[in-house]
């Protein structure tokens, strides 16, 4: 939490004066710069993922086949997977394939990895989106509520609840939800996924508890961030200016305070997204949902390294992409940020 707050404190805008300024140029330039940075970050991430998964172990074929395999079978598999080629060649082949939409072959499923991932994403993506929606709605409402009642009982209650939210592991909360809603009241399934073809209602029904488990726990952090960002803004002089114009408290909150609090909130949401992805993997496991997380674990158990590599790369790319959009959104909101990269 301190780390997060320092981040926000560090984001002081550059106070510069520029007379040859036009809005479109500046935003266009910023977009361009951020896009280049995005590509560089993705490239670097792919090298890290490739490096850890393909270079560290020394011999991936050995890992896949286990310690008991004979050298001949290891060599044969290594050849089949192209592991006997140089590192650069292998990296180029992997990345080239991924860019063309060819994620390679799963050794354990003996099928192309692309469709395998797509099938799992159909579960994981809606889960993540639903969870994010819950987090945002709960955190913004609770954070704004608390900030407006600073120090009063409503604020204290929200802060206490969020302190508990910070302490409860999401997978345990998921288990408790199952205990209460599935085991005790039998209102929702305790796990599994009927598939989208079973109808929207049943499919969403299977996702609602996982999304709640994920979203509510994440909301604890974001509530605190929202509250403190809003409190900071409410102390600013321009809030008093807005009131001196004759704006009501409510209009001041919506027109002046919240937009200014939004950039730190969005930034933290972007950083939280990585946790959301990680949390989704765990919560999928609790509810035995056939999502990306399950695929990763099965592949680890099967020693299907390429699937793990593709999945991890995909998750990392999503996180990086989301943060790219957060940066763009912040720059769209705050004209001062557009200049920073320049």
């Amino acid at each position: 939490m301190l780390f997060i707050r320092l981040e926000m404190a560090g984001a002081s805008p550059a106070m510069t004066m520029d007379l040859n300024w036009t809005p479109t140029d500046e935003m266009g330039l910023y977009l361009f710069q951020r896009f280049i940075l995005l590509l560089a970050t993705l490239a670097f991430a792919s090298i890290v993922v490739f490096g850890v998964l393909e270079i560290l172990p020394g011999n991936a074929a050995q890992v896949m086949l286990g310690a008991s395999a004979t050298p001949e079978t290891v060599a044969a598999l290594a050849h089949k997977l192209g592991l006997d080629q140089g590192v650069i060649v292998r990296y180029a082949a992997w990345i080239g394939g991924v860019l063309r939409g060819d994620f390679g072959l799963s050794y354990a499923y003996d099928s192309p990895i692309g469709p395998l991932i797509a099938e799992r994403l159909a579960v994981s993506a809606p889960l993540a989106l639903l969870a994010m929606l819950i987090t945002t709605a709960v955190a913004l409402a609770a954070g704004v509520f608390a900030a407006q009642r600073r120090g009063k009982s409503g604020d204290v209650a929200v802060m206490a609840a969020s302190q508990i939210g910070l302490a409860v592991p999401n997978f345990w909360f998921a288990i408790l939800l199952v205990l209460v809603f599935a085991v005790h009241w039998r209102l929702a399934p305790s796990g599994g996924f009927p598939g989208w073809e079973a109808g929207l209602g049943r499919a969403l029904g299977a996702l609602i508890l996982p999304a709640l488990a994920l979203g509510l726990v994440q909301a604890a952090v974001l509530t605190r961030v929202t509250r403190s960002a809003l409190l900071d803004v409410l102390n600013e002089d321009f809030i008093r200016t807005a009131r001196a114009k004759g704006l009501s408290r409510r209009a001041t909150l919506w027109r002046h305070a919240l937009p200014n609090a939004l950039t730190p909130i969005l930034t933290i949401m972007g950083l939280q997204f990585a946790n959301l992805i990680a949390g989704a993997i765990v919560v999928e496991y609790v509810f035995t949902l056939p999502g990306l997380g399950r695929l990763v674990f099965q592949s680890i158990a099967n020693r299907d390294l390429l699937v793990v590599e593709d999945c991890v790369m995909l998750l990392v790319a999503i996180v990086i992409g989301v943060n790219f959009f957060v940066d763009i959104a912040c720059a769209a909101i705050d004209p001062r940020l557009r200049r920073r990269a320049a």
Partner: peptide
């Protein structure tokens, strides 16, 4: 950059 790699990943 490392924020893209949470502990779990």
């Amino acid at each position: 950059f490392t924020f893209a790699f949470p502990a779990l990943l």
